[in-house]
Amino acid sequence: MRMKEDHMKNGQLKLGYNVQLATENQFILFYSLHQCPTDTRCFLPHLERLAASSLPMPKNVIADTGYGCEENYLYAIGEEKEPRFDFLIPYGGYKKEKNRRYKKDIRHASNWTYEELEDRFVCPNGRYVSFMKYH
């Protein structure tokens, strides 16, 4: 795994591991080591290893924004749309989107009016913006 800091600026490959912990009431119940550089990609393997152990699966999972991604949310919801566990995992821009300055900024489509029947947004200038394609 390539580390974030490279003081020598020579692209040297350094050993590094990502440690994941499962805790309850401030006690460590389970841990796992991963070679994934981000927490986002460690969430699924960590919980799969926990499920394969003799420990019970958690009823509630709370994690920081480093774990917030669509793949992890879909895993938590489960295959049959019945949640595997309740979870509180905010996505990366959640905190920024909640401040007053962001909510008043008309450049963000999330602040525009959405017309569900027509499947389009209405910008502050009154123009209609329809979906064209994914990038």
Rank of each mutant, 00 (worst) to 15 (best):
S54E: 09
L55M: 03
Y67E: 00
S110N: 05
F27Q: 09
E24Y: 15
C42W: 06
N125I: 02
L117T: 07
V122E: 03
Q35G: 13
G68H: 05
L117D: 14
N99Q: 11
T40K: 12
Y91G: 06
D119F: 13
M57N: 07
R49G: 14
E71S: 15
D64I: 05
M1A: 05
S53G: 08
R127L: 06
S32T: 14
E115D: 11
D105W: 08
Y17C: 12
Q20G: 12
D39W: 03
D105R: 08
Y67R: 01
Y128N: 05
P58S: 07
I28Y: 04
N18A: 02
S110D: 02
H108V: 05
F85E: 00
V61Q: 12
E48M: 11
A63T: 04
E5H: 11
A63G: 10
R101C: 07
G126H: 02
I28Q: 04
N25E: 07
E70M: 14
L44D: 09
N72D: 04
C123H: 05
P58Q: 04
F85T: 01
H7F: 10
K104H: 13
F43P: 01
E116M: 06
A52F: 06
R100L: 13
C123A: 03
G68N: 01
C69V: 03
Y134P: 01
F85I: 00
S54N: 07
Y31G: 00
V19C: 05
M8P: 09
H46V: 02
R101N: 11
G126M: 07
D6I: 07
V61F: 08
L15Q: 09
T65G: 14
E97M: 13
E79T: 05
G11N: 12
P83T: 05
G11M: 08
K95Q: 12
L74M: 13
M1Y: 11
P56I: 00
N99V: 00
L29E: 03
S54F: 11
V19N: 08
Y128T: 11
N10R: 13
K4A: 12
D6Y: 06
P58C: 05
Y91N: 07
E24C: 10
N18W: 11
N60T: 09
N60D: 10
D119Y: 15
P45C: 01
R107I: 05
R49D: 14
T40M: 12
K4P: 07
Y17H: 06
N99Y: 15
S110F: 05
I62Y: 15
K104L: 15
D105K: 06
L117H: 14
L74W: 02
M57C: 07
T23W: 00
